[in-house]
């Protein structure tokens, strides 16, 4: 599952991420373009026991999370 939260400001991406992983998917990819969402989406996914890796792509970040 890939979700695009580019343009959304803190805290919307992390709250939408919470909803998006409600059904406990094995993998999820989140696109963000601001620092605060990058950090709190990653933090939330880690807290939800996902392994999180981040790739920077010209001022945007792809957060990949796997259970």
């Amino acid at each position: 599952m890939e979700i695009d939260y580019r343009g959304l400001s803190c805290p919307e991406p992390v709250i939408r991420t919470k909803k998006a992983i409600k059904d406990n998917p094995q993998t999820v990819e989140v696109l963000v373009d601001q620092r605060a969402p990058l950090e709190n989406v990653s933090r939330y996914l880690r807290a939800m026991k996902y392994d999180v890796s981040v790739q920077e792509e010209s001022g945007q970040w792809r957060i990949s999370a796997t259970k």
Partner: peptide, 17 residues
């Protein structure tokens, strides 16, 4: 640190963070 007084309570309520 992204310190925020409103965010502190909000994250506690919504994310248990």
């Amino acid at each position: 640190t992204r310190m925020c007084m409103a965010g502190g309570f909000r994250d506690l309520y919504l994310l248990k963070d």
